[in-house]
């Protein structure tokens, strides 16, 4: 079993009103040094194979086809074990 973590984040230049709202919340809590917040998604995946290379390729295909909307989002696949 291959374990992987997929992160999906908004592309640079795409406005992130939710990140902005979180940033404002942190400022309200006194964390005034927070310069910016960009919100994203994390998918912890288990793939039933022993071939890490194949799993990575498949996960990238999953990102392209469903996990990310590549019009507005970037993705990163990290094999963690």
């Amino acid at each position: 079993m291959i374990k992987a973590r997929v992160t999906v984040t908004l592309k640079n230049g795409v406005l992130d009103p939710q990140g902005k709202a979180i940033e404002g919340g942190l400022h309200s809590l006194g964390f005034e040094d927070v310069a910016s917040v960009r919100q994203g998604k994390v998918f912890d995946m288990a793939v039933d194979t022993s071939d890490a290379g194949q799993a990575e390729k498949d996960l990238a295909a999953m990102c392209e086809k469903l996990l990310a909307n590549t019009v507005i989002e970037n993705y990163n696949v990290e094999i963690i074990g």
């Binding site: 795409v14 406005l15 009103p17 939710q18 709202a21 909307n69 019009v71 507005i72």
Partner: peptide, 17 residues
């Protein structure tokens, strides 16, 4: 229709949240 690729672009969370 944007998600399936029949139309270009994407629809995101309203700017006012």
């Amino acid at each position: 229709l944007t998600e399936v690729g029949l139309l270009p672009g994407a629809l995101m969370r309203n700017a006012g949240l």
